[in-house]
Design a binder for these strands. Structure first.
Length: 267
DNA sequence: TATAGTGTTATCGG
DNA sequence: ACCGATAACACTAT
């Protein structure tokens, strides 16, 4: 589910509904999601504090806490979602993608939760448990956020080597926020083959790639998620290129499932 | 029952 | 040590 647009939405949910509320309890019992912290460590660090600001870079979020407290790092992984609920369990914000059909208050896949003084809760709902909660996360390891990257940074990010361009777009240390679906849409818009070695990119191709990146991110953030991207809706066995009707090719690039138009995305 | 999957990272080989 | 490829992680939906 989550790429940059979904994570930005989750950040705004936190900013809108979870800031400046006193934390009275923390559920950090899931030692996989909360690794490397032992149970109770995050709880001890947060009880009595408030979240004061919610930040995002790429797909990573972090919240500052009151009283010189630690930074709370939040990553949604593949299936994570932020849900804020009222004391009675009614969902206030965050959507219900993974929880269709459940009764109010039945957050079966809640893997981490803050309880506020009024009984309301902020939860990481994550069926696959690939999301992550940690204190003082190493955000500095991430590349520039994909919404803010400059042409010079973009050029430097592409770097050299024989890596396929799609693999580089997915490298969060190079540029932060592009996931598998955004990458396919960007490459389709730039008419570039996902397996093209970054060594072979001309200056014009780099410029076209940056334009496509900005366009895809802008439209998918505005649309509310990567699902609104034209090429993403085309995925599947009968997918055809929206430009020319050619059956889409399917393969693996950068270790991920990849759909592309064999006619106009050339090496 | 078998398989794919929107993310990250440890590990392996060159 | 650097770079790139792959497996593994945990679990659900189809």
């Amino acid at each position: 589910m989550p790429e940059l647009p979904e994570v930005e939405n989750a950040r705004s949910v936190i900013a809108r509904a979870a800031l400046d509320r006193e934390v009275v309890d923390v559920d950090d019992h899931d030692t996989w999601v909360c690794r490397p912290h032992p149970p109770g460590e995050i709880r001890a660090a947060l009880v009595g504090r408030r979240l004061t600001v919610a930040h995002r870079r790429g797909k990573s979020m972090w919240c500052e806490t009151s009283g010189d407290g630690p930074v709370l790092g939040i990553h949604l992984g593949m299936s994570g979602k932020i849900v804020v609920a009222d004391p009675d369990g009614t969902e206030v914000d965050g959507g219900d993608y993974w929880e269709r059909g459940r009764a109010p208050g039945d957050f079966r896949y809640s893997r981490f939760a803050l309880t506020f003084a009024d009984g309301g809760r902020l939860m990481l709902v994550d069926p696959r448990r690939l999301g992550r909660i940690r204190l003082d996360p190493p955000i500095e390891l991430l590349g520039p956020d994909a919404t803010e990257i400059t042409p010079a940074q973009f050029r430097a990010m592409l770097g050299r080597g024989t890596a396929p361009v799609k693999a580089r777009l997915l490298d969060q240390h190079a540029i932060a926020g592009i996931g598998n679906l955004l990458a396919d849409d960007i490459l389709w818009r730039a008419r570039m083959h996902p397996g093209k070695p970054v060594d072979d990119l001309s200056a014009d191709e780099v410029a076209a790639l940056l334009r496509a990146t900005r366009y895809a991110i802008r439209t998918s953030v505005a649309g509310g998620g990567v699902h609104t991207l034209e090429i993403v809706r085309m995925r599947g066995p009968d997918a055809r290129c929206p430009r020319d009707g050619t059956p889409m090719s399917h393969g693996t690039y950068g270790g991920r499932s990849t759909w592309f138009c064999p006619l106009d995305q050339r090496l």
